[in-house]
Amino acid sequence: MKGKVVSYLAAKKYGFIQGDDGESYFLHFSELLDKKDEGKLVKGSMVHFDPTPTPKGLAAKAISLPLE
């Protein structure tokens, strides 16, 4: 699924993505496929991810940034 980063707290390594389906997904650095892309996780960045339901809500897994 595609989505847009709505927040990312680099110090805490987490944030949120708004998916194309309108839902909010929890984003964690550990799910970023290329850790070098962390600096690109800023508000408004477009990402691809696997939407995954968890006991705490919806989460983004296997997060990647589109090729530039």
Rank of each mutant, 00 (worst) to 15 (best):
D20R: 05
Y14D: 03
T54D: 05
A11M: 09
K13V: 02
K2M: 12
P66C: 14
Y8Q: 02
E23S: 09
I17T: 01
G15M: 02
H28V: 06
L32S: 01
F29H: 08
T52L: 13
Y25P: 00
L58Y: 08
G19A: 04
K61N: 06
S7C: 14
V6H: 08
L33E: 06
A10I: 12
P66H: 15
E31A: 11
K40F: 09
G3V: 02
G44V: 02
P53T: 13
P66S: 15
L32Y: 02
E68H: 12
L67H: 12
K43S: 09
D50Y: 15
K43L: 08
G15W: 04
S30T: 10
K61P: 01
S45G: 08
K12D: 07
M1Q: 06
F26M: 04
L67E: 13
A60W: 00
S24N: 12
G44H: 05
H48S: 13
L27T: 02
H28P: 05
G3L: 00
E38I: 09
G39F: 12
H48F: 15
L65W: 06
A59I: 15
H28W: 05
L9G: 08
G44C: 08
M46R: 15
D21S: 04
D34I: 07
L33P: 02
P51C: 05
V5D: 02
S64T: 13
P66N: 13
A10H: 11
K4W: 15
L65V: 14
P66R: 12
S24R: 14
P55W: 09
F29Y: 15
D37N: 08
G22D: 05
K43D: 05
K4F: 14
F16G: 01
P51I: 08
V47Q: 00
T54H: 08
D34A: 05
Y14Q: 05
D20F: 10
E31P: 00
G44W: 04
I17D: 00
Y8K: 03
L41S: 01
V42L: 11
K36I: 07
M46N: 10
L41T: 02
P55E: 10
S64M: 11
E31T: 03
G57Q: 02
Y14G: 03
L9Q: 12
P53L: 13
S24G: 06
K13L: 05
H48C: 14
H28Y: 07
H28I: 05
A59S: 09
S64N: 08
D21Q: 03
G22W: 03
D50N: 15
P53S: 14
M1K: 07
K2F: 13
D20T: 09
H28R: 06
Y14A: 05
S30Q: 08
P51S: 07
F49E: 01
L41F: 03
V42W: 08
G22A: 05
Y14N: 04
I63E: 01
L27C: 03
K36M: 11
L41Q: 00
P51L: 05
K2P: 06
G44F: 04
K12P: 04
K40W: 07
V47T: 04
M46E: 12
S7T: 13
A62G: 11
K43M: 08
T52N: 10
Q18D: 09
G19P: 01
A10Y: 11
P55Y: 09
E31W: 07
